[in-house]
């Protein structure tokens, strides 16, 4: 099975792709922190963030459509997380429908939170889309993130392929023999889980056969170039501009 929907744009060439993963992780963290702490609903700040993000997407060579589609998928979750703020009481009432009342202050807070979240998620998405997953894991290991967490993240990635493969095999086998109704779907899901479980057991044996004792070891390479200095500078400039605007 092919899994081009995962890691699809991580191996293309662009200035963003060539930034060292450690630098990319740190600058992404700083950018998100700047947005969370310094962003407010003002035209200058909004424009600055929009222009900065658009530029980043443009030079990363990631299709805008692909990027936006992923943000739209995440949007309901962002809205759901902020919905409670929208109905907080206090200040000028701007909308009411039965027991539901929306106040100006809460509405502004809600919109700020949503915009902040969208920008932060976009930065995170840019990091994930432009970096092979294995490199992110290595960088996390380098930053002394507990090996258990790094191993778990690695397994989630690896096992997602296994579950997808097993699901597709079961689905193709079932659809080749007739229509897929609710009952058949339930069989597909259960057989996917059982097969995945069996395969994960075998993978564990294979890991054990190669000396695995609970910690995944990898070799790290650290090479820095001028683009890493440029990325750090741009991040700092953005932070200052956001603060001063």
């Amino acid at each position: 099975m092919k899994h081009h929907f995962i890691d699809h744009y991580s191996s293309i060439n662009s200035p963003i792709h060539s930034i060292n993963v450690s630098v990319k992780l740190i600058t992404s963290f700083i950018l998100i922190l700047s947005i969370v702490l310094l962003f407010s609903l003002e035209t200058e700040k909004l424009l600055l963030c929009l222009v900065f993000l658009t530029l980043l997407i443009a030079i990363s060579h990631i299709p805008a459509k692909y990027f936006l589609r992923n943000i739209i998928i995440l949007l309901p979750f962002i809205l759901l997380a902020g919905i409670s703020i929208l109905f907080q009481q206090g200040g000028e009432k701007i909308f009411s429908f039965g027991p539901l009342e929306i106040y100006r202050e809460s509405f502004d807070r809600f919109i700020t939170l949503i915009v902040r979240s969208i920008f932060s998620v976009s930065i995170l998405q840019l990091l994930i889309t432009t970096t092979p997953y294995s490199e992110i894991l290595k960088a996390l290991e380098k930053f002394r993130v507990p090996s258990l967490i790094v191993s778990l993240l690695g397994f989630i990635y690896r096992y997602s392929f296994i579950i997808y493969d097993e699901f597709m095999r079961a689905k193709i086998a079932a659809s080749s023999r007739g229509r897929l109704n609710l009952k058949v779907w339930s069989y597909i899901v259960s057989s996917t889980l059982l097969r995945s479980l069996e395969r994960s057991r075998k993978i564990y044996l294979s890991m054990k056969a190669r000396g695995f004792e609970g910690r995944i070891r990898t070799l790290n390479y650290t090479r820095y170039s001028q683009i890493d200095v440029a990325a750090t500078l741009v991040t700092m400039i953005f932070m200052v501009l956001l603060w001063k605007s």
Partner: peptide
């Protein structure tokens, strides 16, 4: 192992081949 999908579990070929020697 018979099934290579069982044998290979690391994100890159390099990491998979290096897995055993690193554990040694």
């Amino acid at each position: 192992f018979q099934n290579p999908d069982v044998q290979l579990f690391m994100p890159t070929v390099f990491d998979d081949v290096a897995f055993g020697p690193l554990n040694q």
